[in-house]
């Protein structure tokens, strides 16, 4: 039933023009920032890399790194996917049809979470592949040996999609708790900024575990020391479990 739900969600997306628009915007955004050697986004720890990128000759690798530094912008663009996959279910009450079937509440939540992850994975894949190809078309050097570069590319795609999905997961939990797509979408959109501002204002060191986009940027630009990698991933995985279990418990006890 869970696989059927995921298939149904992808069927629905194939028939929604907003999904095609998101794909188009991803390609345009990636191509433009890579071709124009411009970087933009919400970042705290990326300033060193930013200076390096500005002062050096761009390679395909630096194009991919700049794409990572700009990846927080993707969150805004991909809000539409969140609304289509989860928001519409609640705003149009179609979850009633879904839940009056063999699918359990837990399967429903996991199916939504996986659909969002698969969506983000293919969009982020498209984003980086566009950056990769644009860099090559612009005649830039690889910046690394090709196998190493492809390894980096794979790592970047997985890391950015994973951490972006953690933020979407928080949105999913909020949507189920509040039944408000607006609240969920706003929290997703402001999450990186909120954590950054809170971090600057309070100096709470533990906030770094919740700076998902910052962590994604650090991992993919190789500025995060390997030793710190474990606890941050552990926190994210733990949070995903809390999101799934919390959402399931909430939806089981709600008047739907």
């Amino acid at each position: 039933m869970m696989i059927n739900q995921i298939r149904a969600d992808f069927y629905r997306q194939r028939h929604t023009w907003g999904c095609y628009l998101t794909v188009l915007l991803t390609i345009i955004f990636s191509a433009v920032i890579t071709a124009r050697e411009s970087v933009g986004g919400i970042m705290i720890n990326g300033t060193d890399l930013l200076q390096r990128l500005e002062s050096s000759r761009w390679t395909v690798l630096s194009g991919l790194q700049s794409a990572t530094l700009s990846s927080s912008v993707l969150l805004y663009g991909y809000l539409g996917i969140f609304v289509i996959v989860v928001g519409y279910e609640f705003s149009q009450s179609t979850y009633k049809n879904t839940l009056i079937s063999r699918i359990s509440r837990l399967q429903f939540i996991i199916a939504k979470f996986l659909t969002l992850f698969l969506d983000l994975l293919r969009l982020v894949l498209l984003y980086y592949l566009t950056a990769f190809l644009t860099g090559k078309i612009a005649g830039r050097a690889w910046g690394e040996s090709l196998p190493t570069l492809l390894g980096h590319l794979g790592m970047m795609i997985l890391t950015v999609a994973f951490f972006m999905n953690v933020i979407f997961g928080i949105g999913l939990l909020l949507l189920i708790l509040t039944h408000s797509t607006v609240i969920a979408a706003v929290v997703i959109a402001v999450w990186p900024l909120l954590i950054s501002l809170l971090g600057m204002a309070t100096k709470w060191s533990w906030l770094k575990y919740f700076d998902f986009m910052g962590t994604a940027q650090q991992i993919t630009t190789q500025t995060l020391v390997t030793i710190k990698f474990g606890p941050i991933i552990g926190t994210s995985v733990g949070l995903i479990i809390v999101i799934i279990v919390g959402s399931t418990i909430a939806i089981r006890h709600q008047e739907l």
Binding site: Y88, Q92, S93
Partner: peptide
């Protein structure tokens, strides 16, 4: 099969 309160479907499909 059920219709509870009002029929639910995706309006844009």
């Amino acid at each position: 099969g059920a219709i509870i309160e009002s029929p639910a479907f995706f309006k844009k499909l």
